[in-house]
């Protein structure tokens, strides 16, 4: 219990510090949202009026405190470019990206662990070679290119999946694969090496000598041990998934947080940028916490200490 409270406290501190850092950095980057919004033909006085409406003429500290006050009350402010409340838009896009990340992660985890286990069991056979090939492709191919390739083959040539959008369940397949491919590669490699290491341990020999059947040996005795580093990897990967979703969202016109963040940066929509980044930081923190928890539960050696 104390452990949980400690982690919670440090999480809050991290969030607060990050909010200040984010605020400072984006106000420091060159570029004026009032100019962008007013457009190239606008006169200087129009730009000034816009700037006042956006509240950007106030001192930085005032702007920050006002924003922070709003956040505590659940109000993320008004978007400088769409003039709409940020929270509802952000919530929808966040859920979209979360959904996509979960599907992508599920794909990466299920196929990654499966492929990793298979290649460890069939070490140095054609299956092993195949899975290592998948891993190399997954790590080295740029996400954007993978997305385009998938669309060209499966949407245009074969007509199975739609090119864009998120209406039917089919439209989630390609983006999930696209966003998860990199993680799939990492998880496969991690699973393979972790399994191989574990399979060489003495307790596996004991298990075999006890006459246990193969599924029990591989999936109970071996995998449970192998999972410890794999879980850590998965946790880190999920963070990257959420943060790196923008490329997939752009290719597939998927209305998610990543694209929202990039568009906000281009328009210098300060409150939208701040809100999006804060959400992402929170996700990271939560995921890390969950990974620690899982680690704790998987590894009984940690439990007796302290």
């Amino acid at each position: 219990m104390k452990y949980v409270l400690k982690r919670l406290c440090s999480a809050v501190i991290v969030l607060f510090v990050m909010s200040v850092v984010i605020f400072l950095i984006i106000h420091w980057i060159p570029g004026d949202p009032a100019e962008i919004y007013a457009g190239t033909g606008a006169s200087a006085s129009t730009v000034e009026t816009v700037r006042k409406t956006m509240g950007l003429d106030r001192p930085l500290v005032v702007q920050y405190v006002d924003w922070l006050k709003g956040v505590f009350q659940g109000d993320f402010g008004i978007s400088l470019s769409t003039k709409e409340e940020i929270l509802p838009t952000l919530a929808t896009k966040f859920i979209n990206t979360l959904q996509l990340s979960v599907y992508g992660a599920a794909f990466a985890i299920i196929c990654g662990i499966g492929l990793g286990v298979l290649s460890a069991l069939y070490h140095n056979t054609i299956i092993d070679v195949f899975s290592m090939l998948v891993a190399i492709i997954g790590i080295s191919m740029p996400v954007y290119w993978v997305g385009m390739l998938l669309v060209m083959v499966f949407s245009i040539q074969l007509g199975i999946f739609p090119v864009t959008g998120n209406e039917t369940w089919l439209s989630y397949v390609l983006p999930s694969i696209c966003i998860g491919l990199n993680s799939l590669a990492v998880i496969t490699r991690m699973t393979r090496s972790s399994m191989l290491e574990v399979l060489n341990e003495d307790y596996i020999v004991t298990a075999v000598a006890k006459g246990l059947r193969k599924p029990s040996i591989y999936f109970v005795h071996a995998l449970k041990n192998a999972m410890i580093p794999i879980i850590t990897t998965i946790g880190m990967q999920f963070g990257y998934l959420m943060g790196g979703s923008v490329l997939t969202e752009t290719v597939f016109v998927y209305p998610g947080l990543g694209k929202y963040l990039v568009d906000s940066i281009q328009a210098r929509d300060y409150p939208a940028i701040q809100a999006s980044l804060l959400v992402l930081v929170t996700v990271f923190i939560i995921v890390n916490f969950l990974v620690d928890l899982a680690y704790f539960m998987l590894n009984p050696r940690l439990r007796s200490e302290g």
Partner: peptide, 18 residues
């Protein structure tokens, strides 16, 4: 494992830690 069983040299590593 049933009628013919074996014990090993390293008790520290021969049991599954998890």
């Amino acid at each position: 494992g049933k009628d013919m069983t074996m014990i090993f040299q390293e008790p520290m590593t021969s049991l599954n830690p998890v």
